[in-house]
């Protein structure tokens, strides 16, 4: 009998540390999403059979335009001309990865469930563009980075995948697990004038 999936994101000690210092009117808020699974898919965008198989399993388009994310049942991020990240509810990730694996088994493709290695941070609030600009060299002006855009870049000294998912604005930050504590501490420090609040999903 497998155990039920009850993942720790590893930020629990940081949240405990910060729990005493709640900001009254934060200019930005960070929600740590613990309920998401991550599947890395590799294959050739030019391989129609591969794209079709993946899209059939996902029930949505595989974005082939660089630096875009398909926001539907799953969030499907373009990572490179032959690489995508699918973010989906954690409970369904292993099963979805299995189906993707099966559907692409006769072509040049690779499917890996990497749910344990990534953390999703949802960044919202009026000041979140200012906050990101302190550590990220991307142009995040609404005219330059719109809803449905995503980019792999850096925030401070950590690599991230960043996407704008709505005009609130809401940014989705995907970061490797081992860097997430650093990034959250950096956000806490960089955002102390704007006010920043953390919460667990």
């Amino acid at each position: 009998m497998s155990r039920p999936l009850d993942r720790r994101h590893g930020l629990e000690p940081l949240l405990a540390e910060l729990s005493g210092s709640r900001t009254a009117d934060p200019g930005a808020s960070v929600t740590i999403r613990n309920d998401l699974g991550h599947i890395n898919v590799r294959g050739r965008a030019a391989d129609a059979g591969f794209v079709q198989s993946v899209e059939q399993v996902l029930g949505q388009a595989l974005p082939v335009k660089p630096n875009t994310v398909s926001l539907d049942q799953h969030e499907v991020f373009w990572l490179g001309p032959d690489e995508w990240l699918i973010v989906t509810p954690a409970a369904a990730a292993a099963e979805l990865a299995g189906r993707l694996q099966k559907a692409t088994s006769d072509t040049h493709a690779s499917v890996n469930d990497i749910s344990g290695g990534q953390v999703v941070l949802i960044l919202q609030g009026a000041k979140c563009r200012d906050l990101l600009a302190k550590g990220c060299t991307l142009d995040l002006h609404p005219g330059a980075f719109a809803v449905g855009d995503c980019a792999q870049s850096g925030i401070a000294r950590a690599n991230v995948l960043l996407a704008l998912v709505d005009e609130m604005p809401t940014f989705m930050i995907v970061i490797r697990r081992s860097f997430s504590d650093y990034l959250c501490r950096w956000l806490t420090h960089a955002g102390r004038d704007e006010g920043i609040a953390f919460k667990d999903s």
Binding site: N67, P81, T137, A151, G154
Partner: peptide, 9 residues
Amino acid sequence: WCGERAETE
């Protein structure tokens, strides 16, 4: 693929 980005990337 990604367009113009800073050298640090």
